[in-house]
């Protein structure tokens, strides 16, 4: 375990050094993040000019949820997407062999090999947005609420990583299927409270696809500490999805036969 952490710390510092070599890109990335986030907040603001609550969420609360979504999205863009985006290509072309020959579990190497540290700016901005949303909602935040929110963020990160790895593992069974764009599309549903969706869709996004646990549940617990029961549920779900991803990769790797030219 310690060896893995040391390994990823080294990989992180290498990626960071690689990224800050290109200063213009750094500035551009920051502009993109700020504009994207400002657009999301403005979109929320437009809705609240016509209504006071959205599925029971006030404007400040919805902004805190959006910030939470931004944090998880930033973590995904920084650590997971640079590796698993278009992962199927590696398997189809056989470059995946290189990962298998290295002395660490393939699932970790394949999903966390490189990263895009600049995207962590999204995480920082997300945190600022959460603080602003909490301020706007004028609810009092308890230390227990913040602790629960942090725990739920960790759980959401694990769920994000595990579901993404699970989807990537699909290539071992169905090489023609590339569902990266579909994952992105479903992901977007997390930017609003799941309470706004009609019942069948809400059920789907809570019990079948764990979209609700990415942002809605953490934000709800932060704003209303009465909902602490969500913490063990979310952690259980995170462990469950981790195990599922692990098993899928083990089974998938057994099927992997490499590609020949």
């Amino acid at each position: 375990m310690l060896k893995l952490i040391r390994l990823f710390a080294t990989l992180f510092s290498m990626s960071l050094r690689r990224q800050i070599t290109f200063r213009a890109d750094l500035v551009f990335e920051l502009v993109l993040t700020v504009v994207g986030l400002a657009a999301s907040i403005a979109a929320l603001g437009m809705i609240y000019t016509r209504t006071d609550t959205l599925g029971g969420w006030g404007p400040g609360e919805a902004i805190a949820l959006l910030g939470t979504f931004q944090i998880i999205t930033g973590l995904r863009t920084a650590f997971v997407e640079p590796n698993l985006q278009w992962f199927g290509k590696q398997v189809k072309e056989g470059t995946f062999d290189a990962i298998l020959t290295q002395p660490a579990p393939a699932i970790f190497l394949a999903s966390l090999n490189t990263c895009a540290p600049l995207a962590l700016g999204q995480v920082g901005l997300g945190a600022i947005v959460v603080a602003y949303g909490v301020h706007e909602a004028s609810v009092s935040i308890t230390p227990a609420g913040v602790a629960a929110w942090l725990a739920l963020l960790v759980a959401a990160t694990v769920i994000m990583w595990a579901t993404r790895a699970l989807l990537a593992a699909l290539v071992f069974w169905a090489p023609e299927l590339t569902l990266d764009v579909v994952y992105d599309s479903v992901w977007q549903f997390a930017r609003y409270p799941v309470d706004i969706y009609q019942r069948p869709l809400r059920m789907l996004l809570t019990y079948v696809l764990p979209v609700a646990f990415l942002a809605t549940v953490p934000a709800r617990v932060l704003l209303d500490t009465g909902q602490l029961v969500a913490v063990p549920v979310s952690i259980g779900l995170a462990i469950g999805s981790y195990l599922l991803a692990h098993l899928a990769w083990q089974a998938g790797l057994r099927r992997y036969t490499s590609a020949t030219s």
Binding site: I47, R50, T51, L54, G55, E176, L177, T178, L179, D180, V181, V182, D184, S185, Q188, F189, R191, Y192, I196, Y197, Q198, L201
Partner: peptide, 25 residues
């Protein structure tokens, strides 16, 4: 098959708009 997934990707923002605005009004 990939084309179908990018069609889904294109549809997501209008569909989200539909869902959110139907909930608001």
């Amino acid at each position: 098959s990939f084309l179908i997934t990018i069609v889904i990707g294109q549809s997501v923002t209008p569909l989200l708009g539909l869902l959110v605005w139907s909930a608001a009004l």
